[in-house]
Nucleic acid binder design. Structure first.
Lengths: 99, 99
DNA sequence: GGCGTACATTACTACATAGTTATATAGTAA
DNA sequence: TTACTATATAACTATGTAGTAATGTACGCC
């Protein structure tokens, strides 16, 4: 009765996506984006984080496909690209990041 | 139109749970436990990790309520305590840790 | 008792990353 | 052009943690 051996590459990819969510400030950003598109500076205000810090968190979230970016003049607007995240948070914690 | 401000404590707790899953070897352990209860030494063999390392990973998973322990003589048997994890992995990656 | 086995824990090293500061880039406006 | 603004990036520091080796603990057997 051989058990399902999952390829390490799959586990790595999955762990990587979890890691992107394993940061309270990134969850705060996602929570803000739950209400709709936001510019970086709006997110800076809403989260109280530094601008460079927010940019880096957004980059992580974007590289993992959780958010998408739209540029308009000087501004960069971010929005959710994968709302499944909220379902996952619901399952994970009752009803946290989506409520 | 004030947006849902999630309490930092909630985000911390949620991020902490994600962090527990954000490690490929811990996912490998969960994947092994998908097939049922396993002793520590069985998990050492199945994962190819060191014994101390497996013990520490199991401790993390247990502190977060993902697995439970049953002691029997010299052995410690671990089992899934929260199979929702597999649903989450499915959503996260198509059908990874549960297939 | 002494010995061996299964697991847990400690101490340590190596590496990853969150946050900050400073700078770069790119667009706007005069 | 210069000046200003919004965002991105680079360099750095500080902290957290995965892995390992050694030790501790608890149980079973002789």
């Amino acid at each position: 009765m051989r058990r399902h051996r999952l390829p390490a590459a799959l586990l790595d990819r999955l762990a990587d996506r979890f890691k992107a969510l394993a940061e309270p400030n990134r969850l705060a950003i996602l929570s803000a984006l739950h209400g709709g598109e936001r510019s970086v500076s709006e997110l800076v205000v809403e989260t109280g984080l530094g601008q460079a810090n927010v940019s880096k968190h957004l980059d992580v979230l974007r590289r993992h496909g959780f958010v998408a970016r739209r540029k308009d003049g000087l501004n960069a607007f971010y929005r959710m690209a994968d709302r499944e995240v909220f379902r996952i948070c619901d399952i994970m914690c009752g009803s946290p990041a989506s409520s």
